[in-house]
Amino acid sequence: MVEAVAFDLGGTLFHGEDDVSKAKSVLYERLCERGYELDSSKFESILREASVRFAAQYHGDYRRFHFGAFSEVFFDVWGVDTTAEERASFDRLFWQTRLRHQSLDEHAESVLRFCRRQDLVTGVITNGNRMMTETRLETAGIADEFDVVLCSTGVQAEKSTVEPFEIFLDETGLDGTDCVMVGDRIDEDTWAAEVGMTTVYLSGGSAESRGPEREPDYTIDSLDELPRVVTELL
């Protein structure tokens, strides 16, 4: 019987409209303001190479969400020296811009109310740092809706490993078979199956898979379909 539902954030409870491209534009403007000599085409070229290298180096490693991680790779590809503080400020600007251009899924609040009516434990298991996670939840006014909030830098493990899901079970005191994990990444969120959790894949995510994919137990096209799935499992 289901006693808890855990949610991913980005792509599941929150969606962005051109948030990445807007963050890139703001980052480029800030680089120019700081006096770095870099034309837009060169910036895009460095960004592409850095993104490939960053994914290869950090996927599966929670440290990629610490401030400075991506900028460190970016400046390394560029061949320009800068301070750790400067790199951290660029990463902070990038993520804060993305978060400003993300909004809560239109069905999120009703789904969370459903979970509360069913007296279910609700949780967040997300790849990210504390700032990113708290900003999302507080800005949307749903921070108090969750009993457990786990982010990868806090638990020192990414969702493309089993550790975050084990920690969720430890903190709730529940068995995996009593829990549901909802997310839009079948190379990350479906790792919950390793501890016996039922996995629900929210289709439509555009992120490229970076690791092995697992077949989800359920696939939904919209978050408002989740109550039906949970009801089946009660």
Rank of each mutant, 00 (worst) to 15 (best):
His59Val: 14
Met197Leu: 07
Leu93Tyr: 04
Gly10Tyr: 12
Leu47Gln: 03
Ala157Tyr: 10
Glu145Arg: 15
Glu138Ile: 11
Leu104His: 08
Ser110Trp: 06
Glu171Asp: 09
Ser71Asn: 11
Lys24Trp: 15
Glu171Gly: 01
Arg53Asn: 11
Ile125Met: 00
Arg130Val: 10
Asp105Val: 00
Ala192Leu: 08
Leu93Lys: 04
Arg48Asp: 13
Gly123Val: 01
Phe90Glu: 04
Ser21Thr: 09
Asp187Tyr: 04
Tyr36Gly: 09
Glu145Ser: 12
Glu134Val: 11
Ala4Cys: 12
Arg87Leu: 01
Trp191Leu: 03
Asp61Tyr: 13
Val195Asn: 00
Gln102Ile: 06
Thr231Trp: 04
Asp144Trp: 02
Ser89Lys: 08
Glu86Lys: 09
Met1Gly: 11
Gly123Glu: 02
Asp184Pro: 02
Leu104Ser: 05
Cys32Tyr: 07
Tyr58Ile: 14
Ala69Asp: 09
Ile125Cys: 01
Ala193Phe: 00
Val73Glu: 14
Ala157Phe: 04
Pro212Cys: 05
Gly173Leu: 07
Ser71Cys: 14
Gly211Thr: 08
Phe65Glu: 13
Leu223Phe: 05
Glu166Leu: 10
Thr97Phe: 00
Arg48Pro: 06
Arg116Trp: 03
Asp119Arg: 06
Cys115Trp: 05
Val26Met: 05
Thr126Cys: 02
Tyr201Glu: 05
Arg53Gly: 02
Ser160Ala: 15
Val180Thr: 01
Gly141Pro: 13
Asp19Glu: 14
Tyr201Pro: 03
Thr219Cys: 12
Thr82Trp: 05
Glu106Ile: 09
Ser41Asn: 12
Val77Arg: 08
Val182Leu: 00
Cys179Gly: 00
Asp187His: 05
Arg100Gln: 12
Glu158Gln: 12
Glu33Val: 01
Ala84Tyr: 07
Arg185Glu: 12
Thr83Arg: 04
Glu86Phe: 02
Glu17Ile: 14
Gly68His: 14
His107Glu: 03
Asp105Tyr: 08
Ala50Phe: 11
Val149Ala: 04
Lys24Asp: 12
Thr126Met: 00
Leu38Glu: 10
Leu150Phe: 02
Val111Leu: 04
Phe74Val: 14
Gly141Glu: 02
Gly141Leu: 04
Val230Ile: 15
Glu166Ser: 15
Arg30Gly: 00
Ser206Lys: 14
Met1Ile: 03
Gly128Ser: 05
Ser51Tyr: 13
Val20Gln: 06
Glu188Asp: 02
Gln96Asp: 13
Phe146Ile: 06
Cys151Gly: 01
Leu169Ile: 13
Asp147Leu: 01
Leu169Trp: 11
Gly205Trp: 12
Cys151Ala: 02
Asp175Ser: 13
Phe90Lys: 10
Lys42Cys: 07
Ile142Asp: 01
Arg98Glu: 11
Thr83Tyr: 03
Thr198Tyr: 13
Ser25Trp: 08
Arg185Met: 09
Glu225Gln: 14
Asp144Ile: 03
Arg228His: 14
His59Asp: 15
Arg87Asp: 00
Pro212Phe: 12
Tyr201Met: 08
Arg117Thr: 07
Gln118Thr: 01
Arg48Thr: 14
Leu202Tyr: 09
Met132Asp: 05
Val149Met: 00
Leu112His: 03
Glu188Met: 05
Lys24Leu: 15
Phe94Thr: 07
Arg130Met: 07
Arg100Thr: 13
Gly205Ile: 06
Phe70Lys: 12
Val180Gln: 04
Asp91Ala: 09
Val195Ile: 00
Asp187Phe: 00
Lys42Ala: 09
Val149Gly: 01
